[in-house]
Nucleic acid binder design. Structure first.
Lengths: 241, 241
DNA sequence: CGTCATCCGCTTGTATACTAGTGTCCCGCC
DNA sequence: GGCGGGACACTAGTATACAAGCGGATGACG
């Protein structure tokens, strides 16, 4: 199955099939939601791409109703902008929104990791290091999506340890915007550095030095923003601001 | 028009009209969403109340489609739980979720107010004190909804000053859960104290003492949780956990 | 050749009909 | 009287048809 993709040179609004496939059970609406969300977050469909309800429901062989339902939810998530009577489009990556998402994530995660430090034990440490190992494997294998999945898993461990599932939900929501930014502008050379930073946080936690862990995590998340200074010119038009 | 309300003694799932009215323009779906959300957050419909699509669309004189769209969005907000083929119900107030919302709000608002302190000026101060004055007026007039509205406005000022609109959106989302808790279990005797705490934060900001302002705000938000220790027995069953 | 009006196709929004599943209530049976 | 089964009302999920509005293309007119 060829991964037909919107041509970046046209601004990404070419009316092409986005090779969506419905996977698991559940309602059709949920399946469409998952498929669309995954396609957007992994930038298989680029910011600005046209999301036509008719095209999608034809492409998936379902009616407009569940597709509309999924789009409503994605609009609520801020991943799709709906312009009545004109069209729906994958939300652009706004630099202001990226800055806010980074702020939210940094503040919440630092607070979470401080709480996690109070109950940190060997089990948590082992889980975190396993996630780091998976990231290393993904880098070696060149599986970028596996890397991002393991990255999310790594960061989730702090929330799990601290019992802050609600905060994790908020972090994930902020991350859905950051995720697209990472995948578009992430530098492969930095991936090993990410692993070092992750390891540094866990080392500090294992040593019981919560403050140091918090500062390292803060620096780690802040580093994301250095990407903005080095936006490749050919991708710069995919962001606003 | 009598404000027919679900009977608390029955668990709130009496199939009664909830006196919804559509106000302003925009799409019908948006109007239904606003009306339902307002009714839920202000606990005019209690946690556990049945949300029947058919009943609502009959009551409002619209079709099921926009009602469904609104319910999907509210479910995404965590205010409604949808059980396929069984029914949709106003989400219960889960103590765990309240704790998480408080955590999120405290962490985010403290970080925001620190940034706001860096740019704090007389205009911000005047706006904040105006909001406090409005709260005092609302207390004197016994207009509880006006009080809550002014309270939200007060807290919004920090985000506006610091330019953290995204963080404010996250705060509002967490607050939609806390809001119901406040309205159900809030103690009227504490309202004047709230005003004092608000004034204390602004005083500290005006004096340029950002740390003190942050600590006062943190204490202020944490005080919410003292309500949990004094849940009236007759309302206790409205919460989970 | 330029400009304006009209038409047509596309979009999302809304209304209605149908499907599949669940829980209840009532009636018949034991 | 107690228990079991089936009809029935109700739920949300899905499909389809219609309405309203925007925009571009097209063709006539100046």
């Amino acid at each position: 199955m060829p991964a037909i993709q919107n041509d970046p040179a046209t601004g990404g609004d070419a009316p092409l099939d986005m090779s969506l496939r419905l996977e698991r059970g559940g309602t059709v609406s949920d399946q469409v939601y998952d498929a669309l969300r995954h396609a957007i977050v992994t930038v298989r469909v680029l910011p600005g791409a046209s999301i036509s309800e008719n095209r999608i429901c034809r492409s998936l062989g379902v009616s407009r109703t569940p597709v509309r339902s999924a789009i409503v939810r994605l609009a609520e998530d801020g991943l799709i902008d709906v312009y009545p009577q004109k069209g729906s489009f994958v939300a652009p990556i706004r630099l202001a929104a990226i800055a806010e998402s980074r702020f939210i994530r940094r503040v919440l995660e630092v607070a979470v990791v401080r709480d996690a430090g109070a109950v940190w034990n060997a089990t948590h440490s082992a889980a975190a290091r396993a996630a780091i190992a998976e990231q290393a494997r993904a880098i070696a294998a060149g599986e970028s999506e596996a890397f991002f999945r393991a990255d999310e898993h790594f960061h989730h461990i702090f929330s799990l340890a601290a019992g802050h599932e609600g905060a994790w939900a908020a972090i994930v929501q902020a991350n859905s915007r950051l995720g697209r930014f990472h995948r578009l502008f992430g530098n492969k050379d930095r991936l090993p550095v990410v692993l070092q930073e992750h390891t540094g946080v866990i080392d500090a936690l294992d040593a019981g030095e919560v403050d140091r862990a918090a500062h390292r995590l803060e620096d780690h998340i802040d580093k994301v923003f250095t990407l903005i200074d080095h936006l490749p010119e050919d991708l710069r038009r995919l962001v606003e601001g």
